[in-house]
Structure formats: C-alpha cells, structure tokens
Amino acid sequence: MMMMVLPNKDLLLMQSSCRPPPLLSFPTIKNKPRNNIILVRATLVEEEQETILTTKEKRELRKANRDSKIGTYNWREQVEEKLLQKPKKQFSSWKEELNLDLLAHMGPQWWILKVSRAKGKDTVERMLQALHKNFPDAEFKVFTAAVDEKTKLKSGKISVKPKSLYPGCVFLHCTLNRELHNFIKEDCEGVGGFVGRMVGNTKKQINKPRPVSETDMEAIFQEVKEKQEASDKAFEEEHLRSLEANIVDKTGKKVVTGKTTKRSRKPSGPILGSAVRIVSGTFTDFTGTIKKLDKKRGLVTVGFSLFGKDTIVDLNLSEIVEEQK
C-alpha cells in the first residue's frame, strides 16, 4: 500500500477548505429610542419623588391647617374633656356587677318602684308596714308625685282627689342591698320591682336598680309644688266665679255680673296646644299638650314631662282624650 505525502502547503489548503464559511456580519442598530424612554421615565420618577411628602411633613401640614381654622374652637381641649368625662370601669368582672350587695356602698338613695295603678295607694301602705316589720332598724321614706285636685260637688262639699304625675311609679328612699331588694320584689304584693337597666352577659342577666340623682329629685319636688299651686289657684278662681254667678238681689232674682258675650262654637276634637290625657299604651294616665296634629292620618304628637324632663311621643287619636278643665 502506497502512501502519498503531501506538502505542507497542500495540507494547509485542505484544512482551510474544510472550514465552514465565515458568518456575514451586519451592522447592528442601537436601540436609541429605548434609551430615550428610560431617560424620560427616570425624570418622571425624580419629579414624583420631589412632590411626595414624608410622614412628618404631612403631619405638620395637617397641624398648620387645623391651626388656621381654629378661631375659638380648640379640638385638643374638646378631646381631653371627652376623655375626662368618659366613665371609668367600676367593676373588675361581670359577676361583681351582678352583686346587689354593692348597692349598699352608695348609701341612702332614691329608687323608683313600679306599683299597681289601680291600687297604688293601698299597695304602698302595705309595703311600708311590711318593711317596718321585717327591717325595724332601717329608715324608709316614700314619695308619691301627685297633685291633690279639688272639685266642688253639687251638695256644696269639696272633693279632693290625688292625681299622679307619674302613674305606676313610687319613689323610695333607703339603703338598698340584696336582701331588701328581693323582699320588696318577691314578698310585697302589687310591686313590680325596681326601675333600672339590664346588666350581665349571655350567661346571666338581671335588672339592676338605678338610683335617681338628687338633681332630678329636686326637679320633681319643684314640679309637684308648682302644679299643686296652679291647681289650688284654678280652684279658687272657679269658686269665685261660681259665687259671682249666684248673687241674688233683694227681690230674689239672680244678678248676672259682667258682660254677656256671644259664645263661639268650639271646634270638635282636640286642637294644637290643648291638654290631653293618654288612655292606652305605655304612657297611660299621663297628661300633656298636643305639639303636632294630623287629623287625616289620625296621628298626634303629645309632649309631657317624665322625671322632670320634657318627652315627646307619637300616638293615635284614639289613644288620647281631651282633658276637661
């Protein structure tokens, strides 16, 4: 077998001929618009960073706005007053709030009892007798907010009838505890318990008595006094008018005093400002004046005094009657 030895030049040519053809190089175009966009975005971000305020700067700006609008209003003082007026938590747990023996720490207070309206006077008398018998060392005071209305009968006698300003309510002054509370609520016939509020949680709830403040009691005493004076004055004026109407001369004929005026026809039904009495519902036997009247819909708004405060309630016309003078 023969071998051919090629010169080095030919070998180099063969090697060079076996190489792949070189790749054509095209001129590359730089993405200049993309660089421009990046630059624009960078400038926008810089502008936004210049407008954004820090938290401290925002707080100072809000404070400056508030100070410019203050005038006579100071929001700091108002917030401090609300925090001071906010009642602190009196009890450490809900079980402690249900303990009625803690009411004795308040000392003698005025409490409101719910009694029967039909036999309220007899119920109060029986309750006082039972309290003095079972609690001889305790002191009790009972106040019924009522006005004694006087009327003259045909026979000439004067009838006195008490009219309660708060029907079904009696004020009791004593030092209350659990034993006394349960005795009045369970053993005194005709007493429906104390006026209070529900306390506790979903496990157990009770109606805890709520005392009446001295300010409210003074307002109630003053209200009873003023209405009693007004009632006595009205009775005296009516009595004088009846005496003048029955004056007789020497001949035995009645003498009519004053000018005789033609009586105007009164409109039927209650009118605005007239005195009415509630005959049904929650506020039965309460008296007040008509504030609003809608005869087409049969609705009326009555205003009356409840525990020394003005109260307004919407009723039907069938639930009220006009109070006779």
Rank of each mutant, 00 (worst) to 15 (best):
E238N: 12
T51S: 06
K295V: 15
E149S: 09
P209Y: 05
A245D: 05
K152Q: 15
G298R: 13
D148H: 12
S116Y: 05
R126A: 08
L6F: 15
S93M: 06
A275L: 05
K95A: 10
G168C: 06
L172W: 07
R19S: 03
V147D: 02
E238Q: 08
R34Q: 10
K58I: 10
A230F: 02
F26N: 09
Q15K: 14
Y73R: 10
S159V: 01
T257S: 07
S268R: 11
M14I: 15
S164T: 14
N31F: 00
P267S: 10
V45P: 01
K161F: 08
K89M: 11
K291W: 02
V170D: 04
I271C: 14
E319W: 07
A234Y: 07
F283N: 13
F221G: 00
S305H: 03
R34C: 14
R197Q: 14
S68C: 08
N177Q: 02
F304Y: 00
G200M: 08
K163S: 06
P22W: 03
T261W: 01
D314G: 09
K161Q: 09
E226S: 15
K253R: 02
T54R: 09
Q49V: 04
K86H: 12
K208Y: 09
E60D: 06
E50V: 01
E226Q: 14
V142E: 03
K56S: 08
L11M: 11
K254Y: 10
E179I: 00
R277I: 07
R117L: 13
I290L: 07
T284Q: 10
T144S: 14
N246Y: 10
D67Q: 15
T289A: 12
K262S: 09
S305F: 00
G196E: 05
K95H: 07
I29L: 12
T123G: 04
M2C: 04
K32D: 05
L153G: 05
G308P: 03
L113E: 06
M217K: 07
T251C: 07
Y166N: 01
E186M: 00
L13Q: 12
Q85D: 11
F171W: 02
E322M: 14
E149T: 10
P22I: 02
V160C: 12
K150S: 10
V45Y: 03
L61H: 12
S93W: 03
K82Q: 14
K254S: 08
S280F: 00
L24C: 08
I37G: 02
I278V: 14
I247P: 01
W75H: 13
N99M: 03
E46P: 02
D232K: 06
F135D: 01
I112H: 00
V160S: 13
G193W: 08
N316K: 15
S305D: 01
V79N: 00
P20F: 04
P20A: 08
G71N: 15
V191K: 02
E77D: 13
C18G: 13
T28Q: 10
Q49R: 08
R126Q: 11
V302E: 00
E189V: 13
V279N: 09
L12H: 05
K95P: 00
A234T: 12
A64N: 11
E218L: 14
V276L: 06
L39N: 11
K9M: 03
T261E: 06
R297C: 04
Q109S: 13
G308A: 04
